[in-house]
């Protein structure tokens, strides 16, 4: 049954990857990558059970944290054009 769950999660990840490749905007890609990341957390957890080594859960937990921070960082970069500022930077306004 873990095999069934693993397969379903892998299929979901493949669908998310297709959306990430199709785009069309950068935000669609970020959304798809976010979903890919949350499915990775599930995949690590289920895979730990599949191979009989539930210690993998620590990695899943750490990955959940990293995924969230990464998404916020990427979005902040695209929103402000800079990671160290809380207002839209000059660079961003020049570009648009």
């Amino acid at each position: 049954m873990f095999v069934a769950a693993t397969t379903a999660i892998l299929v979901t990840m493949a669908l998310a990857l297709i959306r990430a490749l199709l785009g069309p905007t950068v935000y669609d890609r970020v959304l798809a990558v976010n979903m890919f990341g949350t499915k990775t957390v599930l995949l690590i957890a289920v895979f730990g059970f599949l191979t009989g080594r539930p210690d993998f859960l620590d990695i899943a937990l750490a990955y959940a944290l990293i995924n969230f921070i990464a998404i916020i960082a990427v979005l902040k970069f695209f929103e402000y054009g800079d990671l160290g500022q809380s207002r839209p930077s000059r660079a961003r306004r020049d570009r648009t």
Binding site: A8, I9, V11, T12, M13, A14, L15, A16, I18, R19, L22, L31, A32, M35, K39, L42
Partner: peptide
């Protein structure tokens, strides 16, 4: 999960 993936597409 798969339903959500289909919806995403």
């Amino acid at each position: 999960g798969i339903v959500g993936g289909i919806g995403l597409l």
